[in-house]
Amino acid sequence: MTATTDPPAPSVPDAPTAAAGPDARAGDPAIEVRDLGIRYNLRLTRRTTIKSSLPSFFGRGEDAPRHFWALRHVSFRLEHGESLAVIGPNGAGKSTLLLALAGILEPTEGDIRTFGRVSTLLTLGAGFEQELSGRDNIDLVAAFLGIDHREMAAITPSIVEFADIGPFIDAPVKTYSTGMKARLGFAIATAITPDILLLDEVLGTGDQTFRARSQARVRELIEKAKAIVLVTHDLTFVSEFCNRALLVERGQIIREGAPAEIVKLYRDRVNELKLLAEAEAGRFALMPGG
């Protein structure tokens, strides 16, 4: 069970519920990912029509790659009380990993097992019906999320209060301003305390006051959740909130370890790549001294 990947777990002071604590749950697995691979079929993505896929039948498209592995041979384990940061350059597969953990993408290879209710804050305002009132939309989004309607009825007042849109809650959503929609979406998305919280840097919505409140809410969720996976470019956030980190590049885990170590590694690699790119650019530039 506790065989391979676990690092010596250097206890980070700010980490929620220290993994070494006497909590009976600590040490139980929250997420187990084994040899995960996600493959996209490039010929079917986005608005394919039969016409545009015809060339590949007639050989013209044959040298174009048909598949793309967004993630491959990814394995890790997350225990209760742990908070994992996933960092890496754009297009490394970070968001794909999050979608897979949320169950939105089905693994092409390997296995993902999760504990309890998984929630992602990707869902701000997704699924709103313009003609329905804010209140009806709360029910609708909850039904999409598979939340029991009795549970939802109990927390609806707190959602309405948090969204702070007053009497508009009974008006059709099409009459809302962008900010009101965002606030309602955020209030719904964060209303349920998940066992596993997946975050893809959605930390600022709305005006200044609401942003402060929403950040406080996210912090609260982070403290309550049993395990967290966070995708971010904000490296200071990583060291503040996470006790482990993964560096992902081109769909593979490069290194797993303590946040400070991984952040440093990532910075070094980014610098290295930048230097390489500059050197490359210099070689191709025709001007002397590039």
């Binding site: 697995p29 089905e106 693994p107 296995d111 993902i112 999760t114 504990f115 309890g116 066992d195």
Partner: peptide
């Protein structure tokens, strides 16, 4: 706050195909 203490990891998935 947490619902059922006996919950374990979700069972391994059977690939759709």
């Amino acid at each position: 706050m947490t619902s059922t203490p006996s919950e374990a990891l979700s069972p391994p998935r059977v690939p759709t195909n």
